[in-house]
Design a protein around this nucleic acid. Structure first.
Lengths: 347, 347
DNA sequence: ATGAAAGCGCTAACAG
DNA sequence: CTGTTAGCGCTTTCAT
């Protein structure tokens, strides 16, 4: 069904049909109603690709994530998709498999078909980013970049909450299981940790770095048990879940003998036994915000503005039964060495 | 960068540039190389929307899922996206929020921008489906529909494996926690259960139906404990995880006092404590297959074929520590009533 | 092997 | 308010 079919049946020109859809107020009421009725009858809908050809806007946005297998991203995606749908935009999705070169190629391939792209936890180097940023408006989530719209999360504050929680319970020594060194999130979490450690007097040793995966947590648990800490702060929930698992295997009771805290707040953190205490980071909200920022930017840009809006979303500690007061031990009773662990404070 | 820029710089007509990309063999070698080199230099890429306008093919496919929050779908999505990318197709994603009407609208909105749509666990009625099937080629995953390409899973066989496993361990009575009544998967799972129950002599009582969610499992666990079964078969992993959780809360040891089996094989089934025995259903493979079927269909269609290919993927029981031999009880020792439970056999 | 011309479905001036 | 004309970027006859 093309616009001409409708035009003919409604005895008007194609322009009038077009106007009835795009600028209804420019069409007399009865004409408009007749056109719209006919369009509805024959099931006509404007072809957006054709429209985009002349208007320069596609009403599509792109969304690129490193790995749909990581539960974090479908959640962000869900929020982004919902927000886009609300603005009557469709979303193109692509998965880079953690590959920065592929990410670049996907951006190039998508650029012409979308009005802008939301990049989640982009793996691109600065150089790569500069090579593509002229192709289409780019918005970043979970990644700090200058002069473009970004959606960040208050990682440091989340860590503060986690450490204060441990301090309140009476813990004096904890381990941090670090994430990927290149990760902005990891740097921020360590930063928050350092300052909270100083403020509360809780000693934090750092282990790792670990891949942000379940298996890494299994490995990390053994390292933790070789130290004298009473609590574990993991880079993310996946790692924390691995720790929980390995601890159970080795007969270490959680939280009686060891408290565990994750970071992320994936749904399953509430479903495991015991349910995991975790720092919740906004996911759907981040997706929504990213799309919003992008859309706003596009609007403003047509007004000549050049924007680099930054939105930082809060984090929140969710206390569950994987944390408790540390076991009371007689002074100096715990002699296990902390091999391989370094003091975070002097870092 | 339009095709004309390239044409000018390469001192050829736009037609030649076009041919260099779409039918390279029709242009002399040196001309082609020059054109392609220039195109690369100026970063030209054909505008696919414009191309689609004339060819009638968009090189896009749509993917519609009921809920990205259900871990099943991102996995299917991952497979579908990867396969589409491999065929140089982009994918449009939409989430219906379990709403059939929205699903219909999304199909209508997408139809013109894609060559076909993959529908995961479609919630549409037959009537709704017929209303949209003429708009664009439709392929279904996890849903039986006649005369169109579909990707199914051998649910019944998965249940057979699960029941045989329980029988081998010595279980004589088990409960099935049913899923949504309208669900094709649920019907198939019950069917497999009935026949396996008959074949093995394991009595299966049915409880529910339950929503396919964690919370429903919490509720279901209490119902289960009011019966005299020694094992639980859940409609899906989410429900099974809820059962595990509630059982732990009530101090019932798994698997010593109760064996639990899920269905789906989400990654987290391996991460909980104890790790969940589950029937693994193909997810990424299903996504891949669906896109493949769709692409094949489109190819054949241009050849005049009319296809309704059906691909059924196998399922596989993954045995983990949430199942074990049932506790030995003295005869008739268990007097708890099975209120609200009905025998599946006579159903 | 290459170019000129027509047109995919739509919207944006420009008349009226 | 509405119709006519031109053209978005591309591919495809039809010539040559």
């Amino acid at each position: 069904m093309t616009i001409h079919h409708v035009a003919q049946r409604a005895r008007v020109s194609a322009s009038t049909v077009s106007r009835a859809f795009t600028t209804p107020e420019m069409v007399r009421r009865d004409t408009r109603e007749r056109v719209l009725r006919v369009a509805d009858e024959v099931g006509y809908r404007p072809n957006r690709a054709a429209r985009g050809l002349i208007t320069g806007k596609t009403a599509n946005i792109g969304l690129i994530v490193p790995d749909l297998g990581n539960p974090l991203f479908p959640a962000v995606l869900k929020g982004a998709q919902a927000r886009a749908q609300q603005a009557d935009h469709a979303v193109f999705l692509a998965d880079t498999d953690e590959n920065a070169d592929l990410e670049v190629n996907l951006i190039k391939a998508m650029a012409k078909q979308v009005d802008g792209i939301v990049l989640c936890s982009s793996r691109m180097s600065d150089k790569q980013r500069r090579a593509v940023e002229s192709l289409t408006p780019l918005t970043f989530v979970y990644r700090k970049v200058a002069d473009v719209p970004i959606v960040l999360v208050d990682n440091a504050d989340g860590m503060r909450q986690a450490v204060e929680h441990l301090a309140a319970l009476g813990h004096r020594r904890a381990a941090y299981l670090a994430g990927p060194q290149a990760s902005w999130s990891n740097r921020e979490r360590r930063r928050g940790l350092r300052s909270a450690s100083r403020a509360t007097g809780v000693d934090v040793i750092e282990l790792g770095p670990f891949a942000p995966r379940f298996e890494a947590g299994l490995q990390a648990a053994d390292l933790v048990l070789a130290t004298d800490v009473t609590a574990v702060l993991a880079y993310n929930d996946l790692i924390a879940l691995g720790v929980l698992n390995r601890l159970a295997d080795r007969g270490v009771a959680v939280p009686e003998q060891m408290s565990v805290i994750g970071f992320d707040g994936i749904d399953f953190a509430a479903m495991c036994t015991p349910p995991l205490t975790t720092v919740l980071i906004p996911k759907e909200a981040a997706g929504r915000a990213a799309v919003e920022l992008l859309l706003d930017w596009l609007d403003q840009k047509s007004l000549g503005h050049t924007a680099g809006a930054q939105r930082t979303l809060g984090t929140q500690l969710i206390v569950r039964s994987s944390t408790a007061a540390p076991p009371r031990v007689s002074a100096g009773s715990n002699g296990r060495a902390a091999r391989g662990a370094r003091q975070l404070k002097g870092d």
